[in-house]
Nucleic acid binder design. Sequence first.
DNA 1: CTCTATCACTTTGGACTTCACAGCTTAATA
DNA 2: TATTAAGCTGTGAAGTCCAAAGTGATAGAG
Lengths: 114, 114
Amino acid sequence: MEGFDCATDDPRCYCLLSDVLDLLGRKYVMDIVCVVAVHGTVRFGTLEAHIPEASTSTLSARLDSLEDAGLLTREQYDEIPPRVEYELTDDGAELAERLRPVLEWAQERDSATA
Amino acid sequence: MEGFDCATDDPRCYCLLSDVLDLLGRKYVMDIVCVVAVHGTVRFGTLEAHIPEASTSTLSARLDSLEDAGLLTREQYDEIPPRVEYELTDDGAELAERLRPVLEWAQERDSATA
DNA sequence: CTCTATCACTTTGGACTTCACAGCTTAATA
DNA sequence: TATTAAGCTGTGAAGTCCAAAGTGATAGAG
C-alpha cells in the first residue's frame, strides 16, 4: 500500500493536509463565517438567532476554534450585562470572500430543488 | 427573542438553510470532492490512500451521501475483485470549481504557518 | 429589599457520529 | 490449502453534539 499510486502530481492533491480544512469541515463553521462576514461585527446572541440549530455550547466551541485559528477576533467589554463582539480578521475576511461562490451555489441549488 | 433583529436583509444571511452546506460541513467531504476532482475518476482504494485519516466506513458513508446529493456517480463493475469508480457529476464539478479558491487559500495558509 | 431580566457563556448527562479493526465476497495465483 | 485482491459492512469503543439548566453581576420593577 505504501508507494501511494497517485496518478497526478497535481499539488491540489495535498489540500488534505490543511488544519483550516479540518475546521471548515465541522458543523456550523461556514455558517458562522458567513453570518459574521455579512454583519461585520456580531454579538453572541445574534449568532444564536441566526443559527438556532446550533447549541450554545457548540457555538461557543466553534467561536473559540475560529479565534484560535486566527480567523476571528473576540472583543469583550466589561459591562453588565456583558457584551462580546466578534469580528473577522483579515484572514477570516479572505476566507469569507473565497467561500462566497460556494455559498451562493449552495443557495441556488437549494432553491432549485425545494 | 422572536422578531429576529437581523440588521441586514442581505440574502447571504440565509445560506444556513442549505442541505449541501450541511453535507460540506462534515468531516472529509471537501477532501473527497477535491480528490475526485483532481483525478477525474477514482476508485475506493485510491481515496483511502489519499485520505488515510478517514476510516473505510466513514469514507463509504460520505460517498453515499455525496451520491444521494447528486454530486457524485458510482459506477460498479461486476468483476472479481470488484471495481467501483467514482466520478463527479456536473453539479459536483461545479462545486469543486467553486471550492478551489478556498482549498488553495487553505493550502497557502498552512504552508505559511508550518 | 426581593424579583426578574439581561447576556454570554459553562456544565451536565444522554444521544448521535466517527473511530479502528475484523470479516465478507469470489477467483486467480503461490 | 493459503494468500491476495477490492470494496465494502458490522462491531463495540471513543469522541462529538445536543437540549436544558445553572452562573455571574447589575439594573430596573414592584
